[in-house]
Design a protein around this nucleic acid. Structure first.
Lengths: 195, 195, 195, 195
DNA sequence: AAGTAATCGAGACGGTACGTCCGGTCTTCCT
DNA sequence: AGGAAGACCGGACGTACCGTCTCGATTACTT
């Protein structure tokens, strides 16, 4: 007697259309960035009417975010080897590797567009940032329990000082994501930069 | 025979129009964000024709960046007291204070839009990020010379791990710019978070 | 074993739905004219699905015509007093009275829409124009038999020269349906306008 | 110092676009009737943007009327031979001839659509009906002056009883515009149908 | 003083995309 | 088999801005 067992009246949502929309949007995103992923282009390529898109997504940004994560979602993984530094470095290097390719550019455009579209911000947070931070934060907390990190440090701030720096470089473009950056970020923060 | 002494033929550029455009754009930006600062709205409010805007700026984003910085530029100041930690904290606190108000939201929108408009990225770097970084980097280098910071540390990375964290919070919105954040950012990095 | 006695298999047509549709359509017609009587609005107000409407009517215009006549059909009446002139004047006055109110506007819209929708034209002819003409034509023929009208005159043309003039004024709007018009139309045609 | 000598500021209206729009609309009207003359189709065929149409016409109906009359306007002519009957018959026959072809169908659609679009009604009256009636009314008045018609007859009613009958047949479609109709209409009204 | 050249205002223009409406068709389950 | 619900595709709507264009008018420097 769960609420899901009660079949909704009327024609059910077309899974075919849903996937066609996400695929079309992801393709357009990959080909020409967010600017090419217009509602009309998505609808045209997916063989779907615009109304069908508007029925299920509030804005084109929301479709784009959904499409992007639908295609790139299976990649949270974290090896907790017990060495907090190595673990963090590995994680950051994976992020940097992803950001060097096309998806990095798209990700930056999505976060960029989210500045003017709250529904995109919500989607980015819920579907990308928060899941990753939650996983990493758990590792940090275990390191605290093991006595590797100070207990009075706010794990959120730690994450921001490592990952924020990467996103900052991507979005401002003042410095490249050069080789060795991941290790520098981690060791600077763990050991401090004071002489 | 300097290039500036040779008066160009024809009617000279109207300074009145230039200022009216920048003022109108800054007002619109403050009122409704980047979305409201359309070329047509700027032209209409400034009492200027669209062509006059296009003659001097490449895109509406470029006008917006110019207008924003024209209004908020007089604020780089850096007291080099000799205590690197206090100096950095003061600087970061000033940035956070600015980001808490309306200008923070606009700044985020400008950086956001820059993800799809290279000319805006250029403008943001040249007129905002780089001047501030240059000033701060000089302070860091003096601290290195004074032996307060390690010489093998990349100052750019140091800056990213402090300032990048602030921008990250503003643009993702996953955490607030809470009280005490500035000092935590600086002390974490200077002293390290290892137990 | 006539065709009507053989009950059709399956669920019989819902009379409730039929009346709800006609009522809803007539209401919408009265409230906002033909433009408001969309299939969706009719279905919504009648608490009926669109398919149910499409199953029984070919187009929204056909529903509208049907609904209009369903509400206004009980009004053919003709007193054959023996004086052809008075009888015609009475009839025309009744038509003009009807056309002065809301139904006149709707009637005009229906005939108007019929210009682009043959099924509406058919409905207007079959359910409105022809029944009335048939009744009036019979009166004319009796007048011919009584020797009041010339036998070589085409009754259809006579009707068009009286009723057509009224419809013309309604649809073009160049002249009002003023008082006294009915008698003028009849006497002009009966007695001629030649000096 | 006439008002027209003062050149308006800004780019002047493009005569090329105006004619392209009218031509495209008239072509579409001739090919597929009013239903085909959508704003998008007109704009597409004319090589013009939709906005340019909306800037100068209030509705697609208004464009259609304008286009129709732009193409068929040069045809008011009236021979006043002194014999009012023959003159009227000739005139009505010309109208019937026109209504038998494609333009008749289009005209009917335009009048039909005007029932739901006041701006079209206005245009039909101003550009088609009233000019023709004015010309014909003058002939009738001269016939009154010559003593051929009764002076107490309303010329507007006379016109309606002849022309209205023709429009009525076209719009209702209950009877054809058969041969000889013009003369019957005129002689019926001039001489009366009473025995 | 006339000529040249660039600017400015106004606003029309072609174009792209928007978000919405409605028409007809379909799919599902219920009666 | 009919019916209610409602998702679906298609086509057109009217609007917003974009970036370009044509005007006439203005404002300097150059002959």
């Amino acid at each position: 007697m769960s609420s899901t067992s009660a079949a909704a009246p009327g024609r059910p949502r077309s899974e075919r259309a849903r996937l066609a929309i996400l695929d079309a949007a992801a393709d357009l995103l990959a080909e020409g960035g967010l600017a090419c992923a217009t509602i009309e282009a998505i609808a045209g390529r997916a063989g779907v009417s615009k109304v069908t898109i508007y029925r299920w997504w509030p804005s084109r940004g929301a479709v784009a975010v959904d499409a992007f994560f639908h295609r790139h979602e299976a990649t949270i993984q974290f090896d907790d080897t017990g060495d907090i530094a190595d673990d963090l470095v590995g994680q950051v290097e994976a992020l940097i590797a992803a950001f060097r390719g096309g998806p990095g550019r798209i990700m930056a455009e999505l976060i960029g567009a989210a500045q003017s579209d709250p529904s995109m911000g919500q989607a980015v947070r819920d579907r990308w940032v928060i899941p990753r931070r939650t996983a990493t934060k758990a590792v940090i907390k275990r390191a605290v329990e093991r006595g590797q990190l100070r207990a009075d440090v706010d794990p959120d701030v730690v994450l921001d000082q490592i990952y924020g720096a990467v996103y900052f470089r991507v979005m401002i473009g003042h410095q490249a994501l050069r080789k060795g950056l991941a290790r520098e970020l981690v060791s600077n923060l763990l050991d401090g930069v004071r002489a």
